[in-house]
Design a protein around this nucleic acid. Structure first.
Lengths: 202, 202
DNA sequence: ATCTTTGAACTGACCAGTCAGTGCAAAAAG
DNA sequence: CTTTTTGCACTGACTGGTCAGTTCAAAGAT
């Protein structure tokens, strides 16, 4: 990577950073390009030099963010694998990785949740791709667990994956928004208990 | 109720109905008052005759919707109580009630999720109140379950409540958006299994 | 020499909120 | 019974402001 393009990378990173915060706080339509440029410490012209439009900036932001998340989930699953852990342990590790990600990028998560189920939006198809990328990682581990006999074959993989993702997503966002004082370990312990069936008993 | 005020009620209902769909699809800022009026089949002026502003219309919509949800959850819990069910059974009934509600009012749910964790918004305080109303019902049943010895005292009530709500919310929205063909019973069974610990096994 | 950024000016579409006026049903006056 | 008045509910053209996107000449970086 030459110095020119890394300079561009840096500018784009500043714009992502500014946009993600503002859009998480206010929503896409309520956020102006002037605001994004100002927060990024960059001229408005620079935004349009680096991105075709406001919408395209947002779409690339989504791709960029979910790429990080999926990588982090996969990393957690693989590491458990390498250490000879069970697939249920891998799920637990992924829950923690999810919490760490949300803790580090709360704005991105907020924005993702706010946009995911909207219909009729320009970036609808981008979101579908990006969602599948994340959910697929969870589904893969669930399927493996079933194949290895760690989990009952009666489990509904897609629905269970959704439910697990939702559990982590909502608990983490609530933690960030309304229960800041709790530690990551507290939150992880509560979710882990639910995963391992120590809530509703057996 | 005289003819005048029932006419107003009808107009307001039409406006709620129009607004909830449009805002769920497009978001608050991207939805114009002209669109809402047109979809409701009234003139723009009528919106401002019935509501102080676009924001106030939205806030009253939120209050109205969460009122319905909280009532429906409480109803499920109470009915289980009356039939002598355990508190864990009550939680299961509430999960189903939640799914039924989301199935009936998907647009409202979408919109609630999209706005809940936004900061710096005008209706922030309305949302806090409204969220508490719904979460409190779940927390109450969890606390009762702990008091009666049905659940371990080590359970973290607020976090577990968040996680349960998130599980239902995300699974239901994913069901509506991406897996329309599944039946309510399928979804309920998958969530119930998670609640009763038949996923991570004991 | 080439790539990237700046910043200010401009355009045209779009939109929240306003307001003078219409329609109508029920009450009051004749 | 008929006419007039009252005021609620609604209408839609209009206004003042905002914002995405464009343009471009000049400056800065490599």
């Amino acid at each position: 990577m030459d110095t020119q393009s890394s300079r561009r990378q840096a500018t784009r990173a500043k714009l992502y950073e500014a946009a993600v915060t503002l859009i998480a706080e206010q929503g896409f339509s309520a956020t102006t390009v002037d605001e994004i440029a100002e927060r990024a410490g960059v001229a408005k012209g620079t935004v349009y030099y680096n991105f075709k439009s406001k919408t395209e900036l947002f779409e690339e932001l989504l791709r960029h963010g979910v790429g990080l998340l999926a990588a982090s989930l996969r990393e957690a699953a693989d590491q458990t694998e390498r250490q000879g852990g069970t697939r249920v342990e891998a799920l637990d590790a992924m829950i923690r990785a999810g919490l760490v990600f949300i803790h580090r990028y709360p704005a991105f998560t907020q924005l993702y949740v706010a946009e995911l189920w909207r219909t009729n939006r320009a970036w609808q198809s981008t979101l579908m791709v990006v969602r599948q990328e994340a959910v697929a990682v969870v589904e893969a581990v669930l399927t493996e667990a079933v194949n290895r006999g760690e989990l009952s074959e009666e489990i509904d993989v897609p629905l269970t994956a959704s439910a697990l993702v939702g559990m982590v997503l909502v608990a983490a966002l609530d933690w960030q928004a309304f229960q800041r004082e709790r530690s990551l370990d507290d939150v992880h312990a509560a979710l882990s208990r639910l995963l391992h069936g120590r809530v509703g008993g057996c």
